[in-house]
């Protein structure tokens, strides 16, 4: 493995990423997607976009703008009320429940609250993702070691999450999401609970994951990170997609604060 990171790389260094492959069929498609919850609240309205393989996309917007709903629709934790969500050409509304695990194994998912098991060590947390999906998989230790090497925590194998900083805990969550070598990496506010340095380290890591060939979708309201990275931006406001911009910024000139 040639890629390694330090826990808190200096800013504003931005890692190299691959360019999205626009001649290939899109890996993610939103077609006029609306989502209304049971209480009648509309989370997103008529949202359409496509994401080509190996793209890096920020979904930005204020709280309640619909960023997390997009992530939840992509992992099919929710289904669209209207429109179609397609992942690798598969319409998620038509996906049978028993095929859902297969979809999720293609994806790496991290959240703001890390979702680590406190009674398991770092290595056990990462191994957990393999044990519950493919318990007979060989070279478990090697795969866990490799994932932890990528996130720069190879020396914390036997440490418990409570003994780690927030940034390190998020790295463990990323390592756990990486063990299946996902083609799509989804991050819902991964820097939300972190100080700026730790948050920047996580973004660097996601850029490197993108560089390794994964499509990354990151929901965030971290303006500094978005503006520094200059990647594609999908800006949400009140459940609507108001801007889809290549090499975009958190706010467009003259745009009100999201």
């Amino acid at each position: 493995m040639s890629i390694s990171t330090s826990p808190a790389p200096p800013r504003p260094q931005v890692a190299e990423t691959t360019r999205p492959v626009r001649h290939e069929p899109p890996i993610i498609v939103f077609q006029n997607v609306s989502k209304t919850y049971h209480n009648g609240a509309a989370a997103i309205r008529d949202v359409s976009f496509t994401i080509p393989p190996r793209d890096f996309v920020f979904v930005v917007g204020a709280s309640g703008a619909g960023k997390s709903t997009i992530i939840r629709l992509l992992i099919r934790e929710e289904t669209a009320t209207k429109g179609h969500v397609l992942v690798e050409g598969q319409d998620l509304a038509r996906l049978r429940r028993r095929h859902l695990p297969r979809l999720r194994r293609k994806m790496g998912i991290v959240f703001q609250d890390f979702k680590l098991l406190p009674n398991l060590t770092v290595a056990q947390n990462v191994a957990f993702a393999i044990q519950v999906t493919d318990p007979g998989r060989s070279h478990l230790k090697e795969k866990v070691g490799e994932a932890l090497y990528i996130v720069g925590l190879e020396d914390k194998l036997n440490t418990f999450p409570t003994e780690l900083s927030g940034g390190e805990q998020q790295r463990v969550a990323i390592a756990r999401a990486l063990v299946h070598r996902p083609r799509i990496f989804l991050a819902d506010e991964p820097t939300g609970n972190l100080d700026p340095d730790a948050g920047w380290g996580i973004v660097q890591l996601l850029l490197q994951i993108n560089h390794r060939g994964a499509t990354v979708v990151m929901a965030t309201h971290n303006r500094e990170v978005v503006d520094l990275c200059r990647r594609r931006v999908l800006a949400m406001e009140g459940g609507c997609l108001i801007r889809d911009e290549q090499e975009g910024q958190y706010l467009k000139d003259g745009e009100a604060n999201l």
Partner: peptide, 17 residues
């Protein structure tokens, strides 16, 4: 519940849970 949530997120089948 957190363990179950993680199992489902990483792609464990319902029967495995």
């Amino acid at each position: 519940r957190q363990e179950i949530e993680i199992m489902k997120l990483v792609g464990a089948t319902d029967w495995f849970v």
